[in-house]
Design a protein around this nucleic acid. Structure first.
Lengths: 329, 329
DNA sequence: CTGAAAGCGCTTACAG
DNA sequence: CTGAAAGCGCTTACAG
């Protein structure tokens, strides 16, 4: 592993000159330039990023904090963020922190101490906000409630509207007994989705029926069992996300309950998986790509605008095969 | 963001002493020690990892190079590696490189220049090996053919045996016309799986029937269509991995072909998703966790053993719902 | 155009 | 036990 000094020696110039030709940061005599280039080629010299980043106080790095790499929603987010970041010359450091607040704090600290240039925070626990003021690098929150002052920006989807759309769709397709599988109400996204459902219930003079569930497959299976016991008349289910919807489907199928003929089902997120399973899942689409691009833009752009208001992205209903029992399929 | 000097000043000691109490690397007078601790507390000082890593020439970092973060096989691998690494005090830098050889080279270089302590290489292209000799950090290859000399170790599963087991299982459950969906034959895993299938065909005097396919969902859909045209008599399919098996199922279902009654189906990998879809997928299990743990061990352990031979992990057949048409389900 | 010097923020011999 | 010094491998004023 050759150093800049070695290259300089071979080329017969100073390390400063080598640095200058590498970075194109100043004019260099063409002859010396050539010599340096050759020396670099010969030695296979690659500048040490750690030294660079120590000097520059930037590692050209964006941290991405997510609660689970096993959840496709977050890997899709990660892919898009990585792509956008790459285009601007940044790498992304993906950090899977689970749902542990302390782990989020540690990770934020670690990212700062690695000279990361910013972080996209897509994991949230109630005490996360307490760690933000101490941080000296910008963070853009995704899917979280707006922790205003200590965050450069807050990006999320119109979950409330999504909850409404899903419920309205189920009513339109003939459901009389819709149960909402609520996600963890500490999560902004879960709360808003539920409130959308609830308000539509109120407007239609329907009694709300809910069950609580975490955002994962195992919880979904267990909750569906409970749901069927508690609400045997159910003919429509609004799941808190796609993974839970898929597990709900799985449990219904095991109980020989036909979807959508007997029970209609709507998920949330529109992850790729919704088109991979059979039947394909009706769901609420979130513009993941747009959010991801915007997050990177906010973190990397020169003119550091700091939107005071959260930016809300629109959602849309994607009708697929788990709803619309009256239609021909 | 306070520095060690600031802390030192507040505590009335030298930066060296602060360093010593932080790292417990030498005895420090208890009184000064207390003062330092208080100063650290007061300032919220967190040592800069970049400076540390420049000095130490280690970033306590393991790179993990994968071809796609969208493939659950690799996120499961990533989770396990991360867990094992964490236990030994390392972070993991996940790098999704696609199937582009040059991108792998860039990434290896980047990891070295970031003072990574080692890399787990789970992506492979034919020209990858050319980059390995230049590298000055250890790499453990997973799922790749043994690039012997320039790799600390090579870990993979007994894909050949897996291919055999899958085919033998299909024969046992009554299939007369098994088609093998071959993966990219540049990949060691795909080649070995196919060879297992092929040899069982030979032993049973069955003519081999194959179709080529990449390791992803889109390719799987297209290939299944082609497969049905080319082999209308098919009654068993050996897919190159679970994702492709799931897409195969999807296409069969669309064509109203029942699984496993009309066509039996076996995947490969045993990703979590196989139990999430309906019907659950019969597949060949790989001990991902064991491989991941071993990889981290080889990269981080003191006594730097360098196994000359590749380490081969056993596979097993997991019978689920897409095979065994004669059994009651 | 170019080299010597200082410095990015740490850590560890070295000398006391 | 502890501080001053040197150094990790770069980069950029600074002076020529």
């Amino acid at each position: 592993m050759s150093s800049i000094r070695e290259v300089a020696q071979i080329a017969g110039v100073s390390p400063a000159t080598v640095s200058r030709v590498m970075n194109g940061t100043a004019k260099v005599d063409p002859v010396k330039r050539e010599k340096v280039l050759k020396a670099i080629e010969k030695t296979g010299f690659v500048p040490n990023e750690v030294a660079r980043s120590l000097f520059r106080k930037s590692a050209k790095l964006i941290g991405l904090i997510i609660p689970s790499i096993q959840n496709p929603y977050f890997t899709q987010l990660a892919s898009t963020i990585e792509e956008a970041a790459k285009e601007k010359g940044y790498r992304v450091f993906l950090c899977d922190v689970g749902i542990d607040g302390e782990s989020i704090a540690d990770t934020l600290q670690m990212l700062e101490s690695k000279n990361a240039d910013g972080v996209v925070l897509a994991a949230y626990t109630p005490d996360t906000e307490a760690y933000l003021p101490k941080l000296n690098i910008p963070v853009v929150a995704i899917d979280c409630r707006n922790s205003t002052e200590h965050v450069r920006a807050s990006l999320y989807c119109d979950y409330y509207r999504g909850g409404r759309m899903a419920m309205e769709h189920l009513i339109e397709t003939g459901c009389k007994n819709v149960v909402c599988i609520k996600g963890d109400q500490n999560l902004f996204s879960a709360r808003m989705r539920y409130e959308g459902y609830r308000d539509v219930c109120t407007e239609h003079h329907i009694r709300e029926q809910t069950v609580d569930c975490d955002y994962d497959f195992i919880a979904g299976l267990a909750m569906t069992e409970k749901l069927l016991k508690q609400f045997p008349e159910v003919d429509g289910i609004l799941a808190c996300n796609d993974i839970v919807a898929i597990s709900t489907y799985k449990f219904l199928r095991k109980k020989h309950i036909c979807v959508p003929e007997q029970v209609q089902l709507v998920g949330f997120d529109d992850i790729h998986l919704t088109r991979l399973v059979s039947p394909e899942l009706t769901t609420i689409h979130q513009p993941i790509t747009e959010m991801a691009n915007r997050a990177v833009e906010l973190l990397t752009d020169e003119n550091r605008e700091h939107p005071d208001m959260p930016e809300v992205f629109p959602v849309s209903l994607i009708k697929r095969e788990t709803t619309g029992k009256d239609e021909i399929r």
